Simulated scan of single mutants.
Amino acid sequence: MGMVEIKTPEQIAKMREAGLVVAAVHAATAEAAVPGATTKDLDQIARKVLADHGAKPNFLGYGGFPATICTSVNEVVVHGIPDDETVLKDGDIISVDAGAIIDGWHGDAAFTAFVGSGHAPELVELSRVTEESMWAGIAAMRGGNRLVDVSRAIETYVRRQPRPGGGKYGIIEEYGGHGIGSQMHMDPHLLNYVTRKRGKGPRLVPGLCLAIEPMISLGTAKTKVLADEWTVVTTDGSWSSHWEHSVALTEEGPLVLTAPDGGRARLAELGVTAAPDPLA
């Protein structure tokens, strides 16, 4: 593991600016994720929102990625490439992963949306479990804890949820969260489950920023990458959900940089007080 970047309050405030742009991208793409829309339509909307806010996309060109956002439909876990051929249909689910850069500081977040209506209860529950496990991980981002405590909180929440129809949820193994700040992906790597091989990880201290992002499927935890060298799908074709927020740990607690309210409402439900918004 390399050196973990610790941010100043001023740098966290700049990341909050980027995070609010990501939230605006989420709102616009969620509204546009309707039957008949293409994933390229969503990408163009995201590009306009970023431009309107004076922000740069952090996905476009990253490692050669050809689009502004990732659009992952149904069995696609992450890194789906927007195109004109993928037309959203009633009953689909789509995970939109978006990022923004403001003055060199990054924001990164993802959400799962339901296209149309009449979704199976197991899909609704899949998204709920994934989102709630993310919030459990965020609530564990407290001074004195270690990185493994965030991983444990995510896994524990998922494992305690009964899956409609039986079986277990698959916690995707090959991908996880990460540090974020002056780059989109930084140390430390954050697993969404606990393994002894990884140890406890660094201690969580003020100034540490993490992108916390569980990816959960209705079946396997295993994935494969398609021929485009980006699109990640489950090996058994089971549908998956992806939720993510960028979070800063401050002297006054966690601040969810990519949530419009800084995470205040959801964290309060979990008995955690969110840090004050530096932009308020």
Score class of each variant (00 low, 15 high):
residue 3 M to G: 12
residue 5 E to A: 11
residue 10 E to D: 15
residue 10 E to L: 12
residue 14 K to A: 13
residue 15 M to W: 02
residue 16 R to Q: 04
residue 17 E to D: 10
residue 18 A to D: 06
residue 22 V to Y: 01
residue 26 H to M: 13
residue 29 T to P: 05
residue 29 T to C: 11
residue 30 A to P: 02
residue 31 E to F: 15
residue 33 A to F: 01
residue 33 A to P: 02
residue 34 V to R: 15
residue 44 Q to N: 14
residue 45 I to Y: 01
residue 48 K to M: 09
residue 50 L to F: 06
residue 54 G to A: 09
residue 57 P to Q: 03
residue 57 P to R: 01
residue 58 N to F: 04
residue 59 F to T: 00
residue 60 L to G: 02
residue 63 G to W: 00
residue 65 F to S: 00
residue 67 A to S: 14
residue 68 T to G: 08
residue 69 I to H: 03
residue 70 C to P: 01
residue 71 T to R: 10
residue 77 V to I: 15
residue 80 G to N: 06
residue 84 D to K: 13
residue 85 E to V: 12
residue 88 L to Y: 11
residue 88 L to A: 06
residue 89 K to V: 03
residue 90 D to M: 07
residue 92 D to R: 03
residue 95 S to M: 01
residue 95 S to Q: 02
residue 97 D to S: 15
residue 107 G to T: 08
residue 107 G to A: 09
residue 113 A to D: 09
residue 113 A to R: 01
residue 113 A to G: 04
residue 121 P to I: 12
residue 129 V to A: 02
residue 131 E to Q: 14
residue 132 E to V: 04
residue 134 M to Y: 13
residue 136 A to I: 08
residue 138 I to G: 08
residue 140 A to W: 06
residue 141 M to Q: 12
residue 141 M to F: 14
residue 146 R to F: 08
residue 147 L to C: 09
residue 148 V to K: 14
residue 150 V to T: 03
residue 152 R to V: 08
residue 153 A to R: 03
residue 156 T to S: 15
residue 158 V to P: 07
residue 158 V to K: 04
residue 161 Q to H: 02
residue 162 P to T: 10
residue 165 G to R: 03
residue 165 G to K: 07
residue 170 G to I: 03
residue 170 G to V: 08
residue 171 I to V: 10
residue 176 G to L: 07
residue 180 I to N: 07
residue 181 G to S: 12
residue 184 M to Y: 02
residue 184 M to V: 10
residue 184 M to T: 14
residue 184 M to N: 09
residue 184 M to C: 10
residue 185 H to R: 10
residue 187 D to C: 04
residue 188 P to K: 03
residue 189 H to G: 14
residue 190 L to D: 03
residue 192 N to T: 12
residue 194 V to Q: 10
residue 195 T to P: 00
residue 196 R to E: 15
residue 197 K to V: 13
residue 198 R to D: 12
residue 199 G to A: 05
residue 204 L to M: 12
residue 205 V to I: 12
residue 211 A to H: 11
residue 212 I to A: 01
residue 214 P to W: 04
residue 215 M to L: 13
residue 216 I to K: 07
residue 217 S to F: 05
residue 217 S to L: 08
residue 219 G to L: 07
residue 219 G to E: 02
residue 221 A to P: 10
residue 223 T to E: 00
residue 223 T to F: 00
residue 229 E to P: 01
residue 230 W to E: 02
residue 231 T to R: 00
residue 233 V to G: 01
residue 234 T to A: 12
residue 235 T to F: 07
residue 239 W to D: 13
residue 242 H to W: 14
residue 244 E to F: 05
residue 244 E to T: 12
residue 246 S to E: 10
residue 247 V to Y: 00
residue 248 A to H: 01
residue 250 T to W: 04
residue 252 E to M: 08
residue 252 E to I: 05
residue 254 P to D: 13
residue 255 L to W: 09
residue 256 V to G: 05
residue 261 D to T: 07
residue 261 D to R: 06
residue 265 A to V: 14
residue 267 L to Q: 12
residue 269 E to Q: 15
residue 270 L to F: 07
residue 273 T to L: 14
residue 276 P to N: 10
residue 276 P to E: 11
residue 277 D to W: 05
residue 277 D to E: 03
residue 280 A to K: 14
residue 280 A to F: 06
